[in-house]
């Protein structure tokens, strides 16, 4: 067996946690319990977990507006996340960040980022710190097929190559930049060809296949850790929901989402593979399912009961270290 049982169970548990967290976010948003804008990543779980499962808290990731999955995969506390997304004082960011700015520096999670393409330049900085301090830590930025067209991302890729930074660029290509197709917005048609043009190893993988994605990212991460510089991995995937919760998705084809949920579900693909290979038993995963459902339920109950921030003390704090 190429993977330990512990590894496989961990991967499945994290993917399932993301799935249930996101599906529950939709429900809670629709129920009026989540303020603002929320973007969920259900359907894309395999990439987040494949990218983060081998990283330590000292390795840094930078995420996107669709960042819940990356947070969970990086080890952020699910209860703290749900409280944050509901704007509670005991949330991961004291309710000051919310879904689009959720972060946990202690876990090496440098933040979701509500500016498309905002993250990769910053992740270069984390990689530069690792290189300068000689820590052997790596940094990994999540991008979409949308942010792939931002100039900041081009600049970040070039600088990463020039300075040989330990930075893995992950492109989650779900086919849609908000409501515009990647095959319209990416002028070169192939992100991976374009990424290679920056002078770094570039590869395209099936992001629905946890194992293919994991192996590509493992190679990229090891290369970065060993001083080999940046790599770009494009992972093809499917977004089960809209750009934001509530997006009517009129731009999507008839039955597209229904078919994707049926035939392009990375969790189902994972289960079928590990059962077929004889690596895990269905019962083991069913047991995890129950535990995850209970954890998510608890996170919602706790979040709904959690205190709101107090404007008298919380509005003006945390702007500066000193002023």
């Amino acid at each position: 067996m190429p993977y330990s049982t512990e590894f496989l169970l961990s991967a499945y548990r994290t993917m399932k946690t993301i799935r249930e967290f996101e599906e529950r976010c939709v429900k809670e948003f629709e129920g009026g319990n989540i303020p603002g804008f929320t973007h969920v990543s259900n359907g894309q779980e395999a990439i987040a977990v494949a990218a983060c499962i081998d990283l330590s808290d000292k390795d840094i990731i930078g995420s996107t507006h669709r960042g819940h999955g990356h947070c969970i995969a990086k080890g952020c506390d699910v209860g703290g996340m749900m409280k944050e997304i509901m704007g509670r004082a005991t949330g991961l960011c004291k309710g000051k960040g919310g879904s689009m700015h959720i972060a946990d520096i202690d876990k090496g999670m440098l933040g979701a980022n509500a500016i498309v393409g905002g993250g990769p330049p910053l992740v270069n900085g984390a990689a530069l710190a690792a290189k300068t301090l000689g820590t052997k830590n790596v940094a990994l930025s999540f991008n979409g097929d949308g942010s792939a067209n931002q100039g900041t991302v081009f600049e970040a890729m070039n600088l990463a190559v020039v300075l040989k930074l330990p930075h893995v660029f992950v492109y989650e290509n779900n086919g849609y930049a908000e409501g515009t197709a990647a095959n319209y917005g990416v002028g070169s048609n192939s992100l991976t060809d374009r990424n290679a043009g920056f002078g770094m190893p570039a590869e395209c993988v099936d992001g629905l296949d946890f194992f293919a994605t994991y192996e590509a990212l493992k190679t990229a991460t090891e290369r970065a850790r060993n001083g080999g510089g940046p790599t770009a991995i494009e992972a093809m995937c499917v977004r089960f929901d809209g750009h934001f919760i509530g997006d009517p998705q009129l731009y999507r084809g008839k039955d597209e989402i229904k078919n994707a949920r049926k035939n392009q579900d990375c969790l189902k693909i994972f289960r079928e593979r590990v059962i077929a290979e004889g690596w895990l038993k269905a019962a083991e995963m069913n047991a995890i399912d129950k535990e995850v459902m209970a954890e998510i339920e608890t996170s919602v109950v706790d979040a709904l009961a959690a205190p709101h921030p107090d404007p008298a003390t919380d509005l003006m704090s945390d702007v500066y270290c000193s002023y």
């Binding site: 930078g62 330049p121 900085g125 984390a126 710190a129 940094a139 100039g151 600049e155 070039n158 600088l159």
Partner: peptide, 20 residues
């Protein structure tokens, strides 16, 4: 650095959050 001001500032900000 290359002439890439967004990358310069981003690298500084990310590095500042990580010990430099």
């Amino acid at each position: 650095t290359p002439i890439s001001e967004a990358a310069i500032i981003g690298a500084a900000a990310g590095a500042a959050n990580n010990g430099l």
